[in-house]
Design a protein around this nucleic acid. Structure first.
Lengths: 281, 281
DNA sequence: GGACATTACGCCATCCGTAACTATC
DNA sequence: GATAGTTACGGATGGCGTAATGTCC
């Protein structure tokens, strides 16, 4: 009995699609197909049948799906037992990342957030004041494992009507910019990108959500991580501002996990964080 | 959640011993220790404590043990579903091996035994009349996987009072032998070992159990696979007959699994067969 | 000293992702 | 042609066994 294969099949059954299951499980779609078929081969049965472009459960597949639900309920009971005695989990990162976590309601029992700038966050890590940290660069901090959480892009956005044509980086300074407070990651990267440190004629706010709202209302051009505005780009409330001499820069996010964190907890938190930063919301 | 680790812990908890769990699971003892400790590390908890030479469950360990029982019950329910639609499993082998299986009551729903001599068994395999076969040699039969089931020894045994001193193979023919019917594996190997084909003055039976009983009653010397009489050797009802010019010969048993057999079923059957032939009963 | 548990190391199986392919609409 | 599923291959991880070591009676 392979719980891993069963969980993949269960997700496929629940969503009625291999592709959807792959997305939800954050694995590739061929991996899902493979495991489902292996489960079938192991027992010499058919659980899923191709139906046109999609799939369909067999009668046995439906029965197994139903019973598997009970199994995972019991598995959760055991996991709760095993995780019952944990101190609050402390997550640190820059304001823009932490605000995403709070917005996505990643707030199980006993999670504490520490929004700081990057230097302060690293200092907290070294002082062993954090269990997890999210930073936009890879650094060696002793006692922490570092892994790539997501790959984002730095982009310029504005309300669709406000997007100037044929712009360059240098010309940006003549436009109204929406900028964040000095010391914030967003402001620092913007400064490096444009090659400027002073932003006269800019609207300044220390709230990412306010900044987005200002851009949406046509108040100016905002420089931000693409995923934080992807939903607005999708529904047309915001548009990308393309520059002749600028290609969107990669903006990785790295998750740092303290060595003191039990592995299962780290894995669970990692999955939740990947889910938050992978969704375009 | 790792079902494998949980099952190992569950067995340890049930038996109260790492070593006993290793034996029951047919894995090495370090592997058990490793998995139990990994389970603990994964969740940052303690489930098992060393207590003198043995171990002791913590309160959490007891709770997890209890809940794990329910989980495995549900897992069994699902396995039954997945295995519900199987044709009867057909197992073939020589009489001495099949009789061990029957004696050990390996007879789940729909198992059919085919006791034949080795040539007939191979013929049945080629005719696709068998799902599993047990043979004392390794042979390439297309459509079958072959794996070593156990390593046994061919030995001479007799009632303790009847064991002659300073015997040789040649001198055996002057002793009363208990032999099995012509064509049986036991008889063939005995012939090869002694270098004789005719056994005058021998007691002949076609029942392994009768043969053992005859030896136990002091009727003569019996040549057999050691594991079939290990229990009697242990409690002194029988004794090994040592010969100056004979070292016990290895008697391997190979399990043949048809390629048509679903993997989980093959695995399960393999475990059951290993259990039968590993025990000295 | 013996029984049991732990640690270290090398090997094999499993599972993933990428890429190329097939089938249905 | 686009979307969903399948097949093939190379690389990382996990779990095993063997062997050596530690620890308690």
């Amino acid at each position: 009995m392979n719980l891993h294969q069963l969980r993949i099949f269960y997700t496929v059954a629940q969503l009625g699609s291999m592709t959807a299951a792959a997305k939800q499980l954050y694995i590739s779609q061929p991996a899902v197909t493979k495991q489902v078929h292996l489960l079938e081969e192991n027992y010499g049965v058919t659980l899923v049948e191709r139906s046109g472009r999609g799939i369909k459960l067999t009668a046995l597949g439906k029965a197994v799906y139903q019973q598997a639900g009970k199994l995972f309920d019991q598995a959760r009971t055991i996991e709760r037992l095993l995780q019952s005695s944990h101190a609050p989990v402390r997550i640190g990162g820059t304001q823009i990342t932490i605000s995403r976590l709070i917005a996505a309601d990643v707030a199980g029992p006993g999670i504490r957030y520490q929004a700081q700038n990057t230097q302060q966050t690293v200092a907290l890590m070294k002082a062993q004041q954090l269990d997890f940290a999210i930073l936009p660069f890879r650094a060696a901090v002793s006692g922490f494992d570092c892994l790539l959480l997501t790959q984002d892009q730095w982009v310029f956005v504005a309300a669709p009507q406000q997007v100037p044509a044929d712009l360059t980086l240098a010309a940006l300074l003549n436009q109204t910019l929406i900028v964040r407070e000095p010391g914030s990651e967003t402001r620092v990267v913007l400064g490096q990108t444009i090659g400027a440190t002073v932003f006269s004629d800019a609207i300044e706010t220390n709230s990412p959500l306010d900044a987005i709202r200002l851009a949406e209302n046509g108040q100016g051009i905002y420089f931000t991580a693409r995923s934080s505005v992807q939903a607005l780009l999708d529904n047309g409330k915001l548009a990308l501002v393309t520059l002749r001499d600028y290609q969107p820069t990669a903006r990785p996010l790295y998750l740092y996990v303290s060595a003191g964190v039990p592995r299962a907890l780290g894995e669970k938190m990692k999955q939740r964080l990947i889910a938050v930063f992978a969704t375009s919301n």
